[in-house]
Amino acid sequence: MSSVEIRNLILTAIALGVCILLPMADSGYWLSIGLSIAMFTVLATSWALFSGPTHYISLATAAFFGVGTYTTGLGFETLPFWSLVALAGMFGALMAALVGLATLRLSGVYFVIFTLGLAELVRQVITWAQNQSGQKGLYVLTDITEAMIYWMLIALAAAVYLTGWLIGRSRLGFALRIIGDDETVAAHSGINTARAKVLLFMVPGAVAAMTGAILAPRYVYIEPSLAFTPMLSFQVVIMALLGGTGRLWGPLAGVVPFTLLWESISSNFPNQTTLLLGLSFLLIVYALPRGFVGLLDRLRQRVTGGVS
């Protein structure tokens, strides 16, 4: 490891340590904000692991997340909680693999459309199944506190960062950078492009499902329209792109400001959240095509490269 990597590792460890202390300081409003930030950090960072290099925009987060919450909802009485999280991860990865196999061979448009409707599809099927069995929703009554959920999310975030770092150093990560640049070159360099993409897509699939499984006890009562809210997918896309997908820490730079903004808008102008989403998308496309990370890189280039 180089000295820069060791420094980054130490900084990350310190940052994580500070995050872990939050529930000691406050167990009300700020813990719930911290929880949202931790959740979106996990979701947006894992999303960017796939969508950053491949440029495929996945809107399937809500679908994976919902499958995760239902895993906990259906199993918490019979299985230990940690095994449900693991199980949710497997379901998410499996589902992502199936979606990937069907769509990732084709162009990006097909993928977006497919993932856009995926959450709605699963929601309809679950609603239908519930109607058949006569239930409406599920009660998830556990003794898991908000602080515990928060800690689990922080641990998951650490795992996501570690995974991202390892992928970045692996052949798979390198293959994906090549695919992102030029898929034809990738294939003619011996890369099985479809396989690489499907493998990588399983990461955000698994992570989002695990996040859903962890968060389920917080909702207490889950029903399809809550577990599969499409808004979640869009929030994740915006946060990741706003921060920038070029770096591992990029999405975090989008998650923190956007979560705070979202909280304040949705508590003050609850009807304007859709408008906020829309304007954020437009802001990203027209003003920040590479996110805050790209903006920072440009500024840095202007400072250091001003002479040449």
């Binding site: 448009v109 869009f234 304007l279």
Partner: peptide, 10 residues
């Protein structure tokens, strides 16, 4: 895709 999503939400 991103721009028209934006327009859609707006």
């Amino acid at each position: 895709i991103l721009a028209t999503f934006g327009l859609s939400f707006v």
